[in-house]
Structures are given as structure tokens and as C-alpha cells.
Design a protein around this nucleic acid. Sequence first.
DNA 1: TATTGTTATACTCTATAACTATA
DNA 2: TATAGTTATAGAGTATAACAATA
Lengths: 145, 145
Amino acid sequence: MSTDGLAQDPGSEAWALMVRLFLSGRPRIAAIGQEFDLSPMQIHALRLLEPGTELPMSALAESLVCDASNVTGIVDRLEGRGLIERRGAPRDRRVKMIAVTRRGAGVRERLMKRMAEPPPAIAALPRADQRALRDALQKALASSS
Amino acid sequence: MSTDGLAQDPGSEAWALMVRLFLSGRPRIAAIGQEFDLSPMQIHALRLLEPGTELPMSALAESLVCDASNVTGIVDRLEGRGLIERRGAPRDRRVKMIAVTRRGAGVRERLMKRMAEPPPAIAALPRADQRALRDALQKALASSS
DNA sequence: TATTGTTATACTCTATAACTATA
DNA sequence: TATAGTTATAGAGTATAACAATA
């Protein structure tokens, strides 16, 4: 007789806890988005555009894991607010390179700083536990990426 | 001279790694949704409706962290597919209780099982690290919830 | 011919406000 | 009058298909 049929091994248990942590953090993410008046996808796109670099629309679509046709609208709205801009590519006149504007870079930096703040559940954890968490995650991501 | 201005303390570093893990896992979540032809919010709603229990629309709205007006549509679509049903409440004829149907319970169980599978990065981790991860997360969530 | 980005279309999620039927 | 849920509306994300310009 199992209890609820889930979470047998420590890996699954850890994963279930991470999902819970993220679901409970949804309001916080939404609130940060409202602070900057940016939708989740706009945040995601801005995050990908490091100042001083350019990305073609196609690369943006791939990183955002959505169809290229959606990127047109996402870029339109960010460009409409002066946060990013479309530039022509030197070799191929079909492609458009996307880059943050100076204003966009400022917004991006403040936004990234807010997003980087760990949620209360993590921040309140004793340093030893934070380190254990960090080390295990570092190991996990080192192997996959 | 700092490296990139972020991730000073272990808590922030751990959080940044978790965000990375979740962002890299987006395609996987999207793929699971497609398998079942369910949108993220439909998945979330189905997850909340444990078989044998009922929830009023208002409770669903609160748990989904969205306006009550949205729940009407989300419930409409799940009900249209026969996965959940609206029932009258005994005392107050204004409220509608939501519950999974027998078919919905079957879909829900298969769905939850797929979602519970940890991503490769976690699954490939040595058991000792999985346990360290689980224990730290357990501690974090115990204090906040 | 093939590819990059756009447009057109249709569906889902989102919030706000106005509405109904109860209480 | 207050509350539970609905409807109306408008904006944003989503995929598919058709299209223009360029390769």
C-alpha cells in the first residue's frame, strides 16, 4: 500500500518539490512583470538580448521555443516601447538582427536584478543548506548543458 | 572586479540555477501538454482537482492565481471534453462545485505521472546529490508553506 | 527552389467592467 | 447591499498556412 503513488526516489521527490516551489512563486513573477509592465515572453526575450550583442529573429524564436510568426509580434511590442530595435544584417538582406537599445539595456538590468532575487523560501534557508542546494544544482546542470 | 554582477551569495546562486533548469525544461513541459492536448492552465486546473473532492470556482480561481472570469472559460473547455463537471452546491445556489469525471481522473493520473518524471539533469544525478537536493528543498518549503 | 520574416486566422489566457441570480 | 459566476471586450501568446523579398 503506497501513500499516493508518487515520489519514490529522491530525484523524483526533489523534482516534485521544485515544481511546488515554482508554482508557489507564480504570483511573485507576475508581480515583477507588472512592475515593469512586461509580459512573461517579453521578459524572456529581453533576458536573451545581452547588451552589445545581436540576435536574428530566427535565433530568438528558437530560444523562446515558439514559432517564428509569434516573434514578429513580441519584437513589435518591445520595439514599440523603444526597448529593442531591428537592424539589417550585413550579408543576408532577409534576416533582421535584434538588439536592445540603450534604454532597453537599462530596463533589462533592473529587471534582471529583481528576477535574480531568490524567493523567501530560499532566502530564509540557512547558508549551509543554500550551499548544498547550489552545489547539487551546479552538478546537475554541468552534466546536461 | 566582479564577473557578471550577479550571484554573490549561495542562495542567489541556487536560485539562478533553478531558473536555468526550469527555462531549459520548457520544451519538455510543452511537449507533455501536447501529448494530452492540454494547455498549461488546463494542466494546472486538472492537477488541483483530486478525484473524490470538489472545489468551488472561486477556490479554483484563487489557486490558479487568475481572475474568476478566466476560470469560466478554462472550466468550459475542460468540461466540453468531459474531463470535469460542474455540480450545484447544497447550501448556496450561487456557487458551482467542480470535480473531475471518471474519464478526467484517468487522464489526470497519466498526466501527473508524466509531469512527475524528473528531467534528465536531475535523473542523472548521483543518489547522494538527489537526496541533498531533496532535503534542502524540503526544508525550504517546510518553513514557507 | 529554399529560406527569413511577415501577415492572416483562429484559439487560449489575461484583466476589467458590466451583468445575473442568488444571498 | 454584497457575493458567485457569467458575459463582453480588448490585448497578448500560440500554431498553422499563405505570402513577399531575397538567396
